[in-house]
Design a protein around this nucleic acid. Structure first.
Lengths: 343, 343
DNA sequence: TTGAAAGCGCTAACAA
DNA sequence: TTGTTAGCGCTTTCAA
């Protein structure tokens, strides 16, 4: 009997550079040179090496390469939910920039859970991604300090980092919401409801600030009952809207704090006889056909800008951390231009 | 003067297990045991090691671990476009299954370019992902044969592999399209247009087959002018639809071969005075409000099923490659129930 | 319970 | 032009 096979054949017993070298009758380093397109190999030698590579089906093991070189050519993206249509274009934009720099993208969803965000970000660091783009779920990112010190370039997107000084690329949430609410005021509304995500989320708070600022600009008081922050599942949003739209002094307009709230609001308002004005934060697909007025942010630009900043750092740029704020844009399509119903 | 610093400090000079061992006054292997929760370490020793880990900010380098263990706990997902709303839920479902198995997800977009698909898939293999989920852009996957032989579990989703025998998880494109077209026929339509993606794409061909089958079932001839396959950008789709809807014998209904075609068709038909019936393949957000009748496929189920199959293989299941076909579902919302206009 | 030595597959440094 | 050696940081093996 021959030897018992090794318990765990590595990589399914793939050929290594050593195998290629043996077959081609050259040294290991010569194979490395050919594989990596380094100069200093005669065409004849190169030919023999290529034949051996072909014959054996050799493919370089990047894990070993990474260990030696210290760079993985991989960036990590921690986002909230890969399935959310807002993050698709953002991811794609990051991917395109990464690709232009020869890097791949590992991404994962935090599901809006700070612990999961941390777990994910640290798992990515353990794999030694060269850089990290994070859409924060939590408000405390001090856990990343050792990583950043150790050289992991890190950029936050959509929401700023908490507790550390780091690059961030954000939309003008405050200004956007303020403009949206001002638009409703300009169309005659005085009682305007505001429904958004949980108050732990930076964008929700900023948009609320914008709402309050616009109301104050117009000299309007805000009743407590007009503001509702919480989870954005349809049930919660429907309940919040229902409360605002009933009673003796119902709101005549709604400002929806993100795409999910807007979608639910559109569904609700479609069923009502009395028209209620609506402006939503974030553009949504087919909003044009539905006539939904929105404050649009450019998700792809957020991703692109963040990724470009990341790679600039990876290429050695030594600027101080900075926050970039991208403009939003009001797109009037009808729902925001409805005048107040009744009196 | 001390030594000149090393030219390229690896990983920003992160501490290694060796450093931790030195600081804790123990052997390297003991640190490894603590880090990996292996038994056989006294509480006292463990405590000292943990202190050293904490003090140095040590984090295990998974790249090195991967090299030794031969498994990366990473799966690769090659899809067409991360920004397409159809693939968001699919990716997310794959991610969730991967997460349940302790694995991370690297994903990239082929942009419907076969070369890019191959480049991406092979880059993932070079990183030694444990498994690969591919939404094919090209029709020839023989380039993956050596990889699969070497042990990379591979599952194709949404479209089957070309030239190799491999697992696939598909939607019932033929049956779905046939049902959708039959639905239009049942509502009185005789001249039905079919607009879909390029004929190189498997799903487009299958849906066309379904369309033809439904027409044949109804004893209806199909005029050449009623079928248009090609890129799904709005301009091309609008031109195709425009042609079908004009002339002496315009179609009275359209079957849209995917979500992008449907969106464009909805926009176009909204502007017309004569009603034209529409059934689209793939559900789209807010289709309920717009009253768009669709053949819905379950993108998340596609991803989940594929990922589960992948991990079953990674856990050693040795079944023959198989194709799983998931049902589609007709959702009537109004646009597909419009009777033919005119005569 | 603990640790020393070997080696995963590759690249950097240097030698021939 | 080519090859040899060392070693990236970890896990495996085996011995103490």
């Amino acid at each position: 009997m021959a030897d018992i096979a090794r318990s765990e054949p590595r990589y399914g017993n793939r050929p290594t550079m050593k195998d290629v070298a043996a077959r081609a009758g050259v040294g290991l380093k010569t194979v490395s040179r050919v594989v990596n397109g380094e100069p200093g190999v005669t065409p004849d030698t190169e030919h023999r090496v290529r034949e051996a590579i072909e014959a054996l089906g050799f493919r370089r093991n990047d894990s070993a390469r990474v260990l030696r070189k210290g760079r993985t050519a991989t960036v990590g993206l921690v986002l909230e939910d890969l399935a959310d249509p807002f993050y698709g274009p953002l991811s794609r934009a990051v991917e395109e920039v990464a690709r232009a720099h020869g890097a791949l993208l590992i991404n994962g969803s935090s599901a809006e859970d700070p612990e999961r965000e941390q777990e994910l970000a640290l798992a990515l660091c353990a794999r030694r991604v060269d850089g990290l783009i994070v859409i924060p779920a939590g408000g405390d990112h001090r856990y990343l300090e050792p990583e950043i010190r150790a050289g992991v370039a890190t950029v936050f997107v959509d929401r700023p980092a908490g507790g550390i000084d780091a690059d961030a690329v954000l939309s003008d949430n405050f200004g956007g919401a303020r403009a949206g609410v001002a638009h409703l005021v300009a169309h005659g509304h005085r009682r305007i409801g505001f429904i958004a995500d949980r108050p732990g989320i930076h964008t929700a708070r900023e948009r609320l600030r914008g709402y309050r600022a616009a109301m104050e600009d117009a000299g309007l008081d805000v009743a407590d009952a007009w503001v509702s922050l919480g989870p954005t599942d349809p049930e919660r949003v429907a309940a919040a809207a229902g409360a605002m739209l009933s009673g003796p002094e119902p709101v005549t307009a709604l400002f929806a704090g993100n795409n999910r709230v807007t979608v639910t609001a559109v569904r609700l308002l479609a069923d009502r006889e009395r028209p209620v004005a609506l402006v939503g934060f974030d553009d949504i697909e087919l909003a044009d056909l539905l006539g939904v007025t929105v404050i649009a942010q450019d998700a792809a630009a957020l991703g692109r800008t963040a990724a470009e900043r990341l790679f600039r750092r990876l290429e050695g740029a030594d600027e101080a951390p900075a926050t970039v704020v991208l403009d939003t844009r009001l797109i009037a399509r009808g729902s925001g231009e409805v005048p107040p119903a009744g009196g």
